[in-house]
């Protein structure tokens, strides 16, 4: 009973936040609504006993990905007037695509595909049940090859992104070189010169 109330409250917020993401005008507000949507999704996953997935969703998407999103949006100079140019011209095409997408979503996710008779409710486990162990057990045995391949693809993506950002400016690298600073010898930098503090009297004019 309480669980259902929590579910409907979270789903209500989720649907509201999701629709606000696409309708609200300010891109920052849209990103913040997306954060709210992720957070409520995590709450719904908690109701399904998927605590590891819920925590990871908050940690990765809310804590890191969306922060970078906001970071980029704040840096961009977004001019809404320019963005809206040709809105009425492209409207028919846009409506067509939207209707197509909507139909596809209804066909795949419509009420005929769901229901307790088609997808039974997941069983609740006791407090001793650790879904991290379950997940790890499956991930590192049954799905070990897909998992490793996905990891390698991500690694390649990281290396590629760094290589792209470095291309053409590796040579004229500015900035600090701590390894050179550490091995600096004071004798190479400063030369102490000994000289008389004052000239002899005879030389003064």
């Amino acid at each position: 009973m309480v669980e259902q109330l929590v579910f409907y409250a979270l789903s209500g917020i989720l649907v509201f936040a999701g629709s606000m993401v696409v309708t609200v005008r300010n891109p920052i507000h849209a990103a913040l609504f997306l954060v709210l949507a992720f957070f409520t999704t995590a709450g719904i996953w908690l109701l399904l006993d998927a605590e590891f997935l819920a925590m990871t969703l908050v940690l990765v998407y809310v804590g890191a990905v969306m922060v970078l999103f906001l970071f980029i949006i704040m840096m961009l100079d977004i001019n809404l007037v320019v963005l809206r140019e040709g809105f009425s011209r492209y409207l028919p095409v846009g409506i067509l695509i939207a209707v197509l997408l909507g139909l596809e979503i209804v066909m795949v996710l419509g009420p005929s595909q769901f229901g307790l008779d088609i997808v039974p409710a997941p069983a609740h486990h006791g407090p001793a049940y650790s879904n991290i162990e379950e997940l790890g057990g499956v991930l590192y045995t049954v799905y070990v090859y897909p998992f490793e391949i996905a990891a390698v693809i991500l690694l390649v993506a990281i290396v590629a992104a760094i290589a792209l950002s470095l291309s053409g400016r590796v040579k004229k690298r500015r900035g600090q070189r701590p390894e050179e600073q550490v091995v600096v010898n004071p004798r190479e930098r400063v030369r102490l010169v000994k000289m008389a503090a004052e000239r002899p009297d005879s030389e003064t004019p």
Partner: peptide, 20 residues
């Protein structure tokens, strides 16, 4: 919680939003 450590990491990572 079983995932107490993850929970703490998730919650502290949300603290950035206050600043942003």
């Amino acid at each position: 919680l079983n995932a107490g450590l993850l929970y703490i990491l998730a919650m502290t990572s949300m603290g950035i939003y206050g600043v942003i």
